[in-house]
Design a protein around this nucleic acid. Structure first.
Lengths: 229, 229
DNA sequence: CACTTGACGACCGACCGTCGGTCTGTAAAA
DNA sequence: TTTTACAGACCGACGGTCGGTCGTCAAGTG
């Protein structure tokens, strides 16, 4: 095999790209290091020069994903003209927008990540995104607390709880995915949508807001994401 | 090696006992099938006669744990004289009591299960207990809804959210465990206790109750469990 | 009733393939 | 020449398989 030398950062990202594609296609456990290096044509030694273990791939991928997720909402976070509720709703709206924009890719990843044998992968991604989003959401809630609109004793705790609510949608989403292609698909999407609305209400209540203050989903959102190809 | 034949159920439980002890001592990944069979003196073939894969051990263990957890609160669930709030609080009180009773064992298991490399183990146990508790809690909340004390649109969704709140304590508990033995231990326990109180408030609010209706922790509970030897 | 027989299923343990990871060496870059 | 990036043969451990063996127990036999 001819030897090709690249700049470390490029090579590292190349490896992460390949690994991410494979993980989202077959899952973490069912993807081997050999699969990854075969895809981009490097050797074992080359791989372990950049990563100290297969586990490191997960860290690298989740870190990248989380980082650029937060990068895409930075402007909202730094806009001083927004009050806390507007900032929070803007943040959520932007998140939805991003999801709808690459709904097909997202949906394809969902198909794999939400399979029971890939729980690890799901939780790793989730944990990474929570880690990145926690200070962000904590800041918003703290602002709301000083503004007197959010009634919470501890902004950070509230942020953690709300972020973890996402994880409790796992089963509901998994059920919807399982129903894809069956006669129950429509009903499953409807059920998921209603479930997500209730999560919005739960967030309202945790923050001490009247029900409906935070539109967690908007009409058609759930269907748009879940039926994307 | 002499051959000892036992009744299948006994042998199966013997294997599960050994595996459970090892998993709670070293974690799932760091325990090998050979470790398990060595501990009770059976062969590979014997093991795979009762279990089709190492993964099956997790299923078996979590199923057992969850099942006898629900068995220990059955009387409360079937007592027709209790209204929903009393039933819920009784349920939580019983759960705390059970935790305090075998706090030392619990704490020892925590030390292992809450380590980052054992996230899988943690989530499996959690998922199993949620699966068992979901119908139970759903029933209680549904009762409360018909009684007009809980203001929730969908009891099952509420149950899932509340049960998943437990998972969001993971990081807080892990932080406290990490602080054990350091100068911050006391402060960490205090912080965890406060965090847990807020979870109680979150449950109040999700169910549409006034803050403080559900004592999620009681004075000294957190410390009792976290300092147990 | 004592004894043999035979089938079934619990159990044995040598063996295998795979996979994550290591190590020595080498070509390219600095 | 030194350092860095990569090659690829190799290793040990682990999950899992497979043909075979031995205990158990019920039915048959005298």
């Amino acid at each position: 095999m001819p030897r090709v030398v690249k700049r470390p950062d490029d090579r590292r990202n190349e490896i992460l790209d390949a690994a991410q594609a494979l993980f989202f296609e077959r899952g973490y456990e069912r993807t081997t290091v050999n699969d990854v290096i075969a895809q981009i044509g490097i050797s074992k030694g080359g791989f372990y020069h950049h990563f100290s273990a297969k586990e490191d791939l997960l860290e690298g991928i989740t870190a990248r994903l989380a980082q650029d997720a937060v990068a895409r909402v930075r402007d909202l976070l730094e806009d001083p003209s927004l009050d806390a509720l507007a900032r929070l709703n803007g943040f959520l709206a932007r998140s939805r927008q991003m999801k709808v924009e690459d709904a097909p890719k997202l949906r394809a990843a969902f198909d794999v990540v939400f399979r029971p044998e890939n729980l690890v992968l799901y939780h790793r991604i989730n944990a990474a995104s929570i880690a990145v989003m926690r200070p962000v959401l904590t800041g918003i809630i703290a602002q709301g607390k000083t503004e007197g609109v959010f009634a919470v004793p501890d902004p950070e705790a509230a942020a953690e709880i709300i972020l973890h609510l996402g994880a409790s949608t796992h089963d509901a989403v998994a059920r919807t995915i399982a129903a894809t292609g069956t006669a129950d698909e429509d009903a499953a999407i409807e059920a998921l949508d209603q479930r997500l609305r209730f999560y919005g209400v739960a967030v309202d209540r945790i923050l001490g807001l009247p029900d409906g203050s935070i539109p967690f989903v908007e009409p058609g959102f759930t269907r748009a994401v879940m039926t994307a190809r």
